[in-house]
């Protein structure tokens, strides 16, 4: 029993990080139809910004905020200056995001150097909690709570605010939304900024747990892509469900079929692609 509880708990907590990363990717794809391969690198650069902030101020929560904001600004600039000019050119947009991956990876080497760094979570989160025979890392619990609160906030934003309904309209059909008086350029910037914010923030959140080093961006990115492919692009519900699935399946897969660690994750994705290309909760294409 404890074994299963531990495995599921671990899976859910990993799903929490995947969710924060995938949600941004999903929003950006859903609204702008951009496959943003820079997203993993945003995650990594966000972590570095968070690290620098933590060193300067000693405040972990401020670090999370600054990591998110810095990447949001970067994302908005990239969207306004580059991606917007390529609207409708799907391939061009993907290729240019790859260009930014390389440039940013190099920038990291120049600015923060090649040495791996770690980041400490506040003391009260670094302990091990215990309920009966079941012990769990507090930090993982914190990640789950954080992701849940973020999901709730996003849900509120999407369903209860005016700007949120514009975003929803844009996910459904950009042209129609434009015709209904939604200011599409503003929505694009907003969505890209929000998605980038989530990526940067999740990078900082993951840092005390995963450490920060070159290469992390492409280690984590596949999980986020699997989540949005399974969940369906642009769907909040899809991102939540699929991220949890990704976390849990990855955990159980590694536990029971360690030789096929990635395969256990990618195979369900392929099956879903074959049966329902739009994902579990995506709009049919």
């Amino acid at each position: 029993m404890t074994f299963w509880l531990t495995q599921i708990f671990n899976g859910v907590s990993y799903g929490a990080i995947v969710f924060l990363l995938a949600m941004g990717l999903s929003l950006i794809f859903g609204v702008m139809k951009v496959i943003n391969v820079t997203h993993g690198t945003y995650f990594l650069v966000g972590a570095y910004f968070g690290l620098t902030t933590l060193k300067q101020t000693g405040n972990f929560f401020l670090a999370i905020l600054i990591g998110g904001i810095a990447i949001a600004i970067m994302g908005i600039v990239i969207e306004r200056v580059f991606l917007r000019r390529l609207q409708g050119n799907d391939l061009g947009q993907v290729l240019i995001t790859m260009g930014f991956v390389l440039v940013l990876q190099d920038a990291i080497l120049v600015i923060w150097g090649p040495d791996p760094v770690s980041m400490d979570a506040p003391k009260f989160l670094a302990s091990t909690g215990r309920i009966g025979g079941f012990s769990f890392p507090m930090y993982r619990l914190f990640l789950i709570v954080f992701a849940a609160v973020t999901a709730a906030a996003l849900w509120f934003f999407e369903s209860r605010t005016k700007i949120g309904s514009s975003v929803r309209a844009a996910v459904d059909d950009v042209e129609m939304a434009g015709g209904m008086g939604v200011n599409v350029p503003v929505v694009f910037s907003l969505v890209f900024g929000l998605g980038s914010f989530l990526a940067g923030m999740s990078g900082v959140l993951a840092a005390p747990w995963l450490g920060i080093q070159a290469g992390l961006d492409f280690e984590i990115l596949p999980f986020a892509f699997v989540a949005i492919i399974v969940g369906g692009m642009g769907s909040l519900k899809g991102a939540v469900v699929a991220s949890l699935l990704v976390g849990i399946i990855d955990n159980l897969g590694k536990t029971f079929f360690p030789e096929f660690a990635y395969f256990t994750l990618f195979l369900p994705m392929a099956v879903i692609l074959a049966i329902r290309p739009s994902g579990l909760f995506g709009r049919a294409m």
Binding site: F82, R85, L86, N89, G92, L95, I96, M98, G99, F100, V101, L102, V103, Q105, D106, A107, L109, V110
Partner: peptide, 15 residues
Amino acid sequence: RSLTVVGCIYIVVVL
């Protein structure tokens, strides 16, 4: 800085 060079080629070609 070869990463930057190749990255810029991506960007320049697309734009």
